[in-house]
Design a protein around this nucleic acid. Structure first.
Lengths: 254, 254
DNA sequence: CGTGGCTTTGAATTACATCAAACCTTGTGG
DNA sequence: CCACAAGGTTTGATGTAATTCAAAGCCACG
């Protein structure tokens, strides 16, 4: 039952310094942003983008560095431009639950009551757009559709959280892994190779803490699915979905 | 691992008819609403309440009746005025996960993409305020603070969902039950008797499906906590928190 | 070419589930 | 008013999926 955790207790850094590099503001060119369509930014027309542009700055974050820490004041919100971010919570003895993985286009930093109840850490090399929360929220008066968009995003996240509760509470290890792989393939369909191969950008321990399992069970279950011919593991950090439809059926609990 | 379920498969009713009684519109008097302060309605000033009043109607829902069903279009949203509502999702073989219990003042019916991904069912006798979603959302243009408030509520729910993921993924049975009792006492502090006794309005099966356990484990764990003197069970549907601080410590994983 | 950090594999353990039966309640009909 | 279903709850015995403990691979990097 007790979960594993690579860092035994929450990392000592309050907020990332080392490894977090501010990029030239010139680099943040909202009008030219490749993933604008996937972010809340697309709520604004091209001619309104300047207002966003003026309050955004970009950062590069190294693997293992924190974007923010559980308990911090929610001063900033972020859009992931590239790379993978994980959100997690700890129990005092080091048990950890990862509540989500974020990919390009995802939004993070919203907090109930202005205090963040979870930490955000870069899994891979990550580039983010950072907004000072107050400045962004001030734009809501000017562009209510921005707030509507944010409500829509939060609603989607809530639905995903409910799916994850079903997974954590009621699915078997095999069903959990199958669900995870199917969702990963859906989220990363940009990076999906023609042969249905997806990168698995996070270590086994992170997958375990996301699915409420141990590293060993994740490893064994992946191995089992591979032996059964549902997937192939061309490398530790890559999966090929050989029979995605069967995998989907397993994921849904049939 | 396989969860229990009182109704083997989702109930046959599409939406509640029998057992759902429309109350006179006159009964819905927003200005006199006792729980307005706990709902999104409090975002409006007294002199603006008329606009809400004009689009609301009240219903009484009998235990076991559905407010809406997974897969329904999200036509209505609701405020719970009294009673307890549960939200849940099924797996095809009948395993069920309850994603939340709602009490007086709670809001429900928000859906990603306009399709509800969960069912809502009355646990006890329930009274709700119903809003046609389109009408309510139309008010957002007129009263942006209404939408802000809804965003705040959704953000709170998301934070609660993340707590529940931590519970489901990483807590032991005892910690789950302790967390549940502490949260219940917090939510129902209105009904909290001087001796720290709280009603336990839902059957054991519902508690099990909320915590990712079986009925038997819920029953045994409650029994164990009672034997240890942390709680007392003056009746099947009531709990007394004898040592709430110790219970809290257990809940938090110490 | 070691050395430290993942990952995999194996064996033993356990927390919780499953199966089974007895035990209330509460409502109903004789 | 009592017998007695019916549905939920508790308790007991047994089973098992997943964890825990342990150790051996496997890279990747200095």
């Amino acid at each position: 039952m007790r979960g594993s955790s690579s860092n035994p207790v929450a990392a000592p850094l309050k907020t990332a310094r080392r490894g977090t590099v501010k990029l030239g503001a010139a680099l943040a060119r909202c009008a030219a942003c490749e993933i604008r369509g996937q972010t809340f930014c697309s709520a604004l027309h091209d001619d309104e983008l300047g207002r966003l542009q003026s309050i955004v700055s970009q950062f590069r974050v190294a693997p293992g560095q924190l974007l923010f820490h559980e308990g911090d004041e929610a001063g900033n919100v972020f859009n992931v431009l590239s790379g993978v971010v994980k959100l997690y919570k700890f129990l005092p003895d080091g048990r950890r639950q990862i509540t989500g993985f974020l990919f390009a286009g995802d939004f993070l930093g919203v907090a109930a009551g202005g205090i963040l109840s979870y930490s955000a850490e870069a899994v891979s090399d990550v580039v983010v757009c950072r907004f000072v929360r107050r400045q962004l929220y001030r734009l809501f008066d000017e562009f209510p559709k921005l707030e509507s968009r944010l409500l829509g995003i939060t609603t989607d996240e809530l639905a995903a959280a409910q799916d994850q509760m079903l997974l954590l509470g009621r699915k078997t290890a095999t069903e959990k892994i199958a669900s995870f792989l199917i969702n990963l393939a859906r989220r990363m369909k940009i990076e999906l190779e023609p042969n249905n191969t997806v990168p698995l950008p996070m270590p086994r321990g992170d997958i375990a803490d996301y699915l409420g399992l141990t590293v060993e069970t994740v490893s064994r279950t992946l191995g089992k699915l591979a032996r059964e011919g549902l997937i192939a593991l061309p490398g530790v950090y890559r999966v090929t979905l050989l029979r995605p439809d069967d995998l989907q059926e397993i994921a849904e609990g049939f």
